[in-house]
Design a protein around this nucleic acid. Structure first.
Lengths: 203, 203
DNA sequence: CTAATATTTGGTAGTGTCTAACACATGGTA
DNA sequence: TACCATGTGTTAGACACTACCAAATATTAG
């Protein structure tokens, strides 16, 4: 019972999952998301529809599959102690974006561009953002069941994630040509108080 | 062709729509969202399934139906000129919550509580929040096609809405017994910089 | 090496959401 | 009353997704 995760089964499973997702993304790009059925994806990957649903519980999961959450939490934990909560989360998010490998960033671009155009995917994308937020809050909460502290965590992470999302959206709308970490830093500076443009009355 | 909107048809349409939504909310509360089919709702409201889909394009729309967007924009426009963008949006959101009628607030509570427990509704709820954000941005953008200004709008409204959402979620989790406008004000004060608790290293 | 076991996959049948095309009935109008 | 617009129902159907059972394949034990 070696089970170092190196069994032939594990290898095949990973390969099958990869194949399904890659064929799915290709077909979605070629024919569009709604015009591509799960059966199409299954046929392209040479498996049955059932197998697709086994690996991806919903069709939207073929596009949305994040693994950045732990990375982000690590970076938040590594921030200096005297720093404000918002500042820490903000910098951690910007750093995570800056460290992204080109391939990952290309995948992010494809995901966001698809998500912005297909309503079903867009809703799922927001829910993924909420999952990230909950993950961060739970990680930073620790053992202290202080409701006020937890509320502060929710607010700060929510605001920072919203700012980061605004940056990602603008970046994706520009075809991914702009500087993503720069946009995120700019966004996070705006909520840090430097952005003081006027709100109403001007039109 | 009087058409003051007072035709017998308009009246019946409004009444039908109301009846469908009320029966839907009642059934969802009684049996649960997933355990209630659209056919059940149609039968309860004494219409056909088709008619339900005519009024509510998706099952989730039976729960999520917002009309606060114009109210919020009005309040943002009414803010004084020298105020910062975030401050203006924040205060406008808190004011809107404070002015809510009891019936509306009860409906909001039911919606959010349902949304927090049913994944499909939750995703739709986030997308509704995005719609609100887009509505605000487009309203404040005016005629000026300045990309940087627009980016600032997206970031500020996103952060404020995230803060307001955190307040609403805590309020709903507490059964609606806490002071919602107070929670929103507290949340918005946190992102305004007063909340300066430390982030990492403490555990 | 062989047999027992566990896991992955496929097939079938079904439920439920949602759409499209058509016919019917009813309210508004001349 | 005759004509037109509009709301509604029926039917048929595509598609996402699930439950149940059978077959194939990998792993493990003897």
């Amino acid at each position: 019972m070696v089970e170092g995760g190196r069994g032939l089964r594990e290898v095949r499973k990973a390969r099958t999952q990869r194949a399904i997702q890659e064929h799915a993304m290709r077909l979605f790009a070629e024919r569009g998301y709604d015009a591509t059925t799960v059966a199409d994806v299954a046929a392209a990957a040479e498996v049955s529809s059932m197998t697709v649903f086994r690996y991806f519980p919903a069709k939207e999961d073929l596009v949305m599959a994040d693994e950045y959450d732990p990375v982000i939490v690590e970076r938040i934990r590594a921030r200096p102690a005297g720093e404000s909560l918002i500042q820490g989360v903000a910098v951690a998010l910007a750093e995570s974006a800056a460290d992204q490998k080109p391939a990952d960033r290309a995948m992010l671009l494809a995901r966001v561009q698809l998500g912005l155009s297909v309503p079903a995917l867009r809703a799922r994308m927001w829910d993924g953002q909420y999952r990230t937020q909950r993950y961060i809050v739970e990680a930073l909460r620790g053992e202290s069941p202080d409701p006020d502290r937890e509320f502060e965590l929710w607010v700060a992470t929510g605001a920072c994630l919203a700012a980061a999302t605004a940056a990602i959206m603008r970046w994706a709308e520009g075809g991914g040509h702009e500087d993503l970490p720069g946009l995120m830093t700019a966004a996070l500076r705006i909520i840090r108080g430097s952005g003081t443009t006027q709100a109403g009355s001007e039109l």
